[in-house]
């Protein structure tokens, strides 16, 4: 365990204490914070470790939400439905990854972007199973009070976040993580020295999808109603990228901090300027890229260096 991994574990532990101090509103925010952190950490595997600009997060989120939702309307209990979602997402994304990650750069970015559109269209057309554009009502998972429900879903999302963080830390310390870094730096060379790049990329894509899918499933059970334009919203694909840019690409601790900072900004903007919130998000993206392209992490070294220069 490196120092930043320990810091990440401490941050998560502090987050778990949230119910001690906050009410239902804080729990709602906490649940979304965990969800965003899962997105950012998962995106970081493909976008940060592997260096492929992926816009597929919304595809997996929607897929997971619908997989769990459909299973629950068929009478499968929530935990079982989530496990099934996890496995389906892992397998489906691994197979897709083997095909999609043959594309590089722009081509991959757009292919992953269109994956979202395609899944939305398929879900929209499969009216018998998913309810199509009318959306899907999902049965209540528990019969407890409002606060009990909030507590349940907060911890469910937190557990997914903890699992994702553990997975990311394990990957970055393993041979797999080393292989991904090799592919990012020079894919052709990595292939030449005998790395099975297709296998590695496929596993990475699967791992980056499975927990996002589970988060989608919990989200579906949490809000009880999903429709294609809600869960296949392309903004779900962009937000993790913004979070990673805020926090600093590639560092797990950085992207989780980025997710928390982003959620804070979003909540303020959403509450005060709902009509122009996506424009403000765009402005944030532009400003970040122009003035702080390496994220908040770089701010520390920059300030530090400036101080050293003065001395």
């Amino acid at each position: 365990m490196t120092r930043s991994s320990i810091a990440l574990a401490v941050l998560l532990a502090v987050l778990a204490l949230l119910p001690l101090v906050g009410g239902a509103y804080a729990l709602r925010l906490g649940t979304i914070a965990c969800m965003y952190a899962v997105f950012a950490l998962s995106w970081n595997i493909v976008g940060g470790f592997l260096g492929y600009p992926s816009f597929a997060t919304a595809a997996f989120f929607g897929f997971g939400a619908y997989a769990t939702g459909v299973l629950m309307t068929l009478g499968v209990p929530l935990p079982l439905a989530l496990v099934a979602t996890l496995i389906t997402c892992l397998l489906a994304a691994s197979v897709l990854g083997a095909v999609l990650l043959r594309l590089r750069g722009h081509y991959f970015a757009i292919a992953s972007l269109s994956l979202v559109e395609v899944l939305r269209e398929v879900v929209n057309n499969a009216t018998d199973l998913t309810g199509g554009g009318m959306g899907l009502n999902i049965p209540l998972a528990s019969n407890s009070s409002v606060l009990g429900d909030a507590l349940f879903f907060f911890y469910a999302m937190w557990i997914v976040l903890a699992l994702t963080a553990a997975m990311v830390i394990a990957v970055s310390a393993s041979k797999l993580g080393f292989g991904l870094a090799c592919i990012r730096q020079n894919e052709t060379a990595a292939n030449m020295v005998g790395l099975n790049t297709t296998l590695y990329k496929s596993i990475a894509f699967g791992l980056s999808a499975c927990f996002v899918g589970v988060a989608g499933g919990i989200y579906a059970a949490w809000v009880h109603y999903i429709d294609p334009s809600d869960v296949f919203d392309i903004l779900y694909s962009v937000k993790p990228i913004v979070m990673a840019l805020i926090g600093g690409l590639g560092s797990p601790l950085g992207v989780v901090c980025g997710a928390l900072v982003y959620l804070g900004l979003e909540e303020v903007v959403w509450r005060n300027y709902i009509q122009i919130h996506s424009g403000l998000l765009g402005l944030l993206v532009v400003l970040l890229l122009l003035f702080l392209p390496h994220g908040l992490v770089s701010l520390r070294t920059r300030l530090f260096r400036r101080k050293a220069g003065h001395a």
Binding site: P53, I241, V242, S278, G282, V285
Partner: peptide, 14 residues
């Protein structure tokens, strides 16, 4: 790629 792509995306959002 990620940077230029995301920048035009931000402009598009605006």
């Amino acid at each position: 790629v990620l940077v230029t792509l995301t920048l035009t995306f931000g402009l598009d959002l605006i």
